[in-house]
């Protein structure tokens, strides 16, 4: 298959690596969460892409349609989105508490304040 046919997957892995890079490389706690979100969302796209059936319609019973997209990945991702929201909320809540305790959300400044790690 030519790579145009796998356009979705190219985008998915580009986003995945972008998000992963942001999580690893950034020292700002909020930016890390943003990167984590991009990383997780790329996985959602991966699942949705694999559920697509060429020429298929939405998985709803409609007269005259016989080819449907696979609904299972959609359902799985609905769950994963909920998990992602919970993770983001918890991460941001922790960032707020860290800001209150340290006065900063930059990782190196936090480490500088607790040097006896």
């Amino acid at each position: 298959m030519d790579w145009i046919g796998q356009y979705n997957y190219v985008v998915v892995f580009f986003l995945m690596m972008t998000g992963f890079y942001v999580v690893v490389a950034r020292g700002n706690l909020i930016k890390k969460i943003v990167g984590l979100n991009i990383f997780q969302n790329s996985v959602f796209l991966l699942y949705i892409s694999m559920g697509k059936v060429a020429g298929g319609t939405a998985p709803i019973v409609v007269a005259g349609e016989v080819v449907y997209s696979n609904p299972l990945p959609h359902v799985l991702i609905l769950t994963a989105i909920v998990v992602g929201v919970a993770t983001t909320a918890l991460g941001l809540a922790l960032a707020v508490r860290i800001k209150e305790a340290y006065g900063t959300v930059e990782e190196d400044e936090i480490h500088a304040q607790d040097d006896d790690w």
């Binding site: 999580v23 984590l36 993770t87 860290i98 305790a101 340290y102 936090i110 607790d114």
Partner: peptide, 20 residues
């Protein structure tokens, strides 16, 4: 200890990467 917060945050990031 306030370092519990940063420890939890660090675990959250690494744990979520692992689960993803």
């Amino acid at each position: 200890d306030r370092r519990a917060l940063t420890a939890a945050y660090q675990y959250l990031i690494m744990g979520t990467i692992g689960a993803t």
